[in-house]
Amino acid sequence: MRKIFQLALILLALQTVMSCSTNEYKRSNNNLESGFVTPPDSIQIGVYWLWISDHISKEGVEKDLYAMKKAGITRAFIGNIGLDNVPEGNVKMFSDVWWDILHVALKTATDLNIDIGIFNSPGWSQSGGPWVKPEEAMRYLATSELRVSGPKKINLKLDKPTDFFQDVKTLAYPVSKEDKFVLNTTNAEITSIPKITHLKRVFDGNKKTGIDFPKGDTFTIDVTAKEPLIARSLLIRTTEKKFKANAIFQVKETNGAFRTISEFEIDRSNSSLNVGFEPYAPVVVSLPEVTNKSFRLIISNYREGSGLTDLVISSAPRIDLKSAS
């Protein structure tokens, strides 16, 4: 009887704990849901409030702010932005009318308890303008390269990578011995499918010369070396046109079939400087070491009018973006 009584107490205790846990879980969920439906004043929800292409009015900013308040927004940052595809309005920034509208916006926001911030200059950059001198502006590192043979004393002048340029540092380092082992028109036969003229330009080491892809969606380059090459890296430089395509690099087996050793994407579709100071920098692919005489590059799904200026199959090991990340 005592054991039964103890068991009943344990079951009762477990049931009580489980009931409390379930109720607590429900309360927690209800609090979470209500926090989204009706955010408390302690929760700050902020937005960018963009005044587009000088199209603003007193009535418009008041309606915007009341709509923000209704949606639970308690903080807004005003940005005066111009869009190319939107005709300019009549309220120019810093005009008397613009200041009046800004005053209405700040007063209305104060009445609604909405915090207001303002970009410190027009445009997306928030810190640029004609008042910033070139030597005071944000800058990036650019490079200029010159290869020399030694050992010997040299007196040379490096080309400036850009017109407005400030010297930072000159670096000299020994080049890998494997760097000179590359395939070109002197040690390999180069063909393409479909066949095009001036294909040799892709292998002349001059990034100012190149080819445009023919019509279609697939272009194949075959490189057959006179002697076997240990391939460790691939460098591809596109023409300075927006470019995005898929690529496959293969080697030829003894049975005549081609084996894929690397698949990758060539993406130079964004030429904006915010992606890097050299928007059309070469694409470098690190390859698993392979020794062969016959190599094939297949490029597909490319944009008509795009093309290549350089293709370098090298014995030198290189680090590609994926390996470095």
Rank of each mutant, 00 (worst) to 15 (best):
S315K: 07
F164K: 15
V182H: 05
G128S: 11
F94T: 07
I73H: 08
K195E: 12
G35Q: 03
V61L: 07
F164A: 14
D64I: 03
V312H: 04
Q166D: 06
A8R: 15
I196A: 07
K200V: 03
S21H: 11
T186E: 12
E240R: 15
D64K: 02
M138A: 10
R303Q: 11
V86N: 07
H198E: 08
G256E: 04
T239N: 08
A324P: 09
S127Q: 09
T22L: 12
S127M: 10
F94W: 06
I10W: 15
L308K: 07
L234K: 01
I114V: 08
R268M: 05
Y25C: 05
P122C: 09
L229G: 07
T224F: 02
K293D: 11
W51N: 02
M18Y: 13
H103S: 13
A105E: 05
I211V: 13
S325D: 05
R139A: 13
I43W: 14
R147S: 09
F249N: 01
R303L: 09
I299G: 04
K107T: 08
K177L: 12
R318I: 04
G210H: 01
P134I: 00
T254Q: 14
Q126M: 13
V283M: 07
P161R: 05
K107Q: 13
K177D: 08
P214A: 08
T38L: 11
L14Y: 13
